[in-house]
């Protein structure tokens, strides 16, 4: 199996700024801004939907504390907390990552979006569609998602990374 970059980074003591049995926080070696931290599960989950709820919970709690620690330690204007879920969202390592990084006035980052106009009718329709698909917290069928995305006859037993990449890109 080709090594996952994040799994490799987890082995680098000099990058780790927090860890416990389930999650770790590491300094990014390719930061968006100085003091860019990545909080991640030690177990290799590709995307958010695959991580168990208790891990997701912990990632959020640690991200909050790291964000606060960064804000209190450096002279910055704010922080961003971000998950790039899927390659289309910019995820380039198939290992769930929560990014926390500072924002300052001259950081030259263009992060944001133009807003679209959507009619009230369309919003109502979307809300109805989406709400029907939202499962209560604690019931997102992690295992089913995995099986649905990658049929058994297409999983190459030797090449786990390929299967994970496929999931990441949501290809069958």
């Amino acid at each position: 199996m080709t090594a996952c970059k994040n799994c490799e980074l987890l082995k680098k003591e000099e990058l780790i700024i927090f860890e416990d049995e389930q999650v770790a926080a590491i300094l990014s070696d390719t930061p968006a801004t100085v003091a860019h931290v990545i909080i991640l599960p030690k177990q290799h989950y590709t995307i958010l939907e695959q991580a168990p709820d208790e891990i997701v919970e912990k990632l959020g709690i640690v991200a909050n504390k790291i964000s606060t620690a960064i804000f209190e330690s450096l002279n910055i204007g704010g922080t961003v907390v971000m998950i790039q879920n899927g390659t289309v969202a910019g995820q380039d390592v198939p290992h769930l990552s929560v990014h926390v990084f500072p924002r300052t006035e001259n950081d030259e980052l263009s992060l944001g979006w133009d807003t679209q106009k959507v009619s009230d009718d369309e919003l109502s329709m979307l809300a109805s569609q989406i709400s029907k698909a939202v499962l209560p917290v604690g019931t997102v069928p992690v295992q089913q998602t995995v099986q649905k995305e990658v049929p058994a006859d297409q999983i190459d037993g030797d090449d786990e990374d390929n299967y994970l990449i496929r999931q990441l890109e949501r290809r069958p």
Binding site: T87, Q91, Q129, R170
Partner: peptide, 22 residues
């Protein structure tokens, strides 16, 4: 998860902005 299932999109950005500058 719901967005993937209901809208047929391929991913999502989860985003928190802390502070006006962010």
């Amino acid at each position: 998860h719901a967005l993937l299932k209901s809208l047929g999109v391929q991913g999502a950005t989860v985003f928190v902005a802390n502070g006006a500058l962010a």
